[in-house]
Amino acid sequence: MMDSYLDLITSQHRGREKFMRTVEALLSCSDDIFALAVYLDDEYDLDYATGVQEDVLGEFVGAQRTLPYQPDKGLSPVLDNEAYRNLLRAQIAKNMWKGGIYDIKELWSALFGKGIIIQDNQDMTIDVLAIGIDDQITKEMVRQGLIIPKPQGVRVNYYFSEQAVFGYDLETETIKGYDHANWMNSMPDVSFAYDIDDPKTGMNGYDDSSWM
């Protein structure tokens, strides 16, 4: 920042050594302050913050690193930096949530860049199918209601799928149908196949495939 100000000094004063030293001395303080501000901004950026910086962000948004329950399968209730970052993002999204059920889809995409399917059962419950979550601790946080926001008084049934689910005449990140030009080869994670039952390839029909 100092150099940009020094460049503004006109030629008739630039050769004055005492004047230039005085200006540099005055600017050095503000230059250090500016460098500190940039450093703090980077340190507390949610995409890069770790350790104490993450904990401070958690105090601001209302999410603690230690989970309020004991996770299954011997997992530690103290989140590592990556899992805690997911929780912080989710808490920020909750704080900004407008309250609509289908707004959750936009929040989920912004948080994880992955698909989610929501069905309103019209009985004060909703079914949420989260697609593509592969780590156990995040699944635990979803089940405990720490990740996905929900309307007050509404019960959420959570389901998980590691792959896109089957649907007729649809072609989205979360639902795949017959119309894809080469869908069995280009989407190897999709386990449903019409009129094919081959355990070696993982392709099954209506009776056994995971989409059921």
Rank of each mutant, 00 (worst) to 15 (best):
Y168T: 08
Y69F: 14
L146Y: 14
D41P: 13
M1G: 10
A25G: 15
N121V: 12
D72H: 09
D207Y: 12
S161L: 04
Q64H: 15
Y158F: 02
L46I: 13
Y44K: 04
C29T: 10
I131M: 08
F160T: 05
A164N: 02
W97R: 02
D72Q: 12
N121G: 11
R16F: 06
L87H: 00
Y168F: 09
A181P: 14
P71M: 01
F34Q: 08
M1L: 07
E173R: 15
D195F: 03
T125V: 13
Q53N: 13
L57E: 13
G58F: 05
T50I: 06
S210W: 08
K176C: 15
E106I: 15
L111D: 09
I104P: 01
R143D: 02
G113W: 03
S161R: 02
L27M: 06
S4E: 14
D127Y: 11
I9Q: 01
S209F: 15
T10A: 10
I147P: 00
I148H: 04
Q53G: 04
R14W: 12
I196Q: 13
S191G: 05
I126Y: 07
L75S: 07
T50L: 01
W183Q: 12
V154A: 01
F19T: 15
K105H: 03
H13K: 15
S191P: 05
A130M: 01
Y168Q: 08
S11K: 00
N185Y: 12
D195W: 01
Y194F: 06
W97D: 01
E171L: 12
N185G: 14
A93V: 00
P199R: 07
W97Q: 00
K139V: 13
D7A: 11
V128K: 00
M20Q: 07
G132K: 00
V142K: 08
M212N: 14
G99F: 07
Y44I: 10
Y102T: 03
T138E: 03
D42K: 06
C29A: 12
N182C: 09
I101R: 12
K98R: 05
I133W: 12
S209L: 13
Y178S: 11
I148D: 07
R21L: 10
R89N: 03
D72N: 10
T66P: 00
M187S: 15
L36E: 10
G205T: 04
V78K: 09
V23C: 05
K114V: 13
F166W: 15
V52G: 02
T172A: 02
L79R: 05
Y39L: 12
P77M: 07
D42G: 06
G167I: 12
S186Y: 14
F60K: 11
D179C: 07
D7P: 00
S76T: 10
T50E: 05
S4G: 08
V154C: 07
A181V: 07
G58L: 06
A83G: 03
I175Y: 15
N121F: 13
